[in-house]
């Protein structure tokens, strides 16, 4: 039988995958993807806790996370498009103008 722990471990693994992505990738779009993975992992944990503790607060937080992801994509994609128009690349290593 599947218990809360199963879902939490799954969520932790997914979150770690997101962390690996954030550390490893240099492409800005891939960083956004990794962020989405982490948000989704949190969603899974929230929904599981909400279901097993019989409390709707978890689902509420999941809804707000979805809203945050939606606004993140709106602003972030606009910024990415601007950056790409300006530098012609999305590679983080190229954005080094603040380096002394």
């Amino acid at each position: 039988m599947i218990g809360l722990t199963h879902y939490l471990v799954l969520s932790a693994i997914l979150f770690s995958i997101g962390v690996v992505g954030v550390i490893r990738r240099k492409n800005l779009l891939m960083l956004f993807f990794a962020t989405e993975i982490m948000l989704n992992a949190a969603n899974v944990a929230f929904a599981a806790i909400s279901s097993y503790y019989n409390d709707l607060s978890g689902q509420m937080f999941a809804f707000f996370i979805v809203a945050i992801a939606a606004s993140e994509v709106a602003v972030g994609l606009g910024l990415l498009i601007l950056l790409y128009k300006k530098y012609g690349t999305l590679d983080l290593d190229h954005y080094t103008m603040l380096k002394g």
Partner: peptide, 24 residues
């Protein structure tokens, strides 16, 4: 893309995973 030290990445990622799994 250039990956500086894949070993470090997987060390950090793996440690995070282990830590989170242990916590949860």
């Amino acid at each position: 893309e250039k990956n500086g030290s894949p070993f470090l990445v997987f060390l950090l990622g793996g440690m995070t995973a282990v830590l989170l799994v242990v916590i949860f």
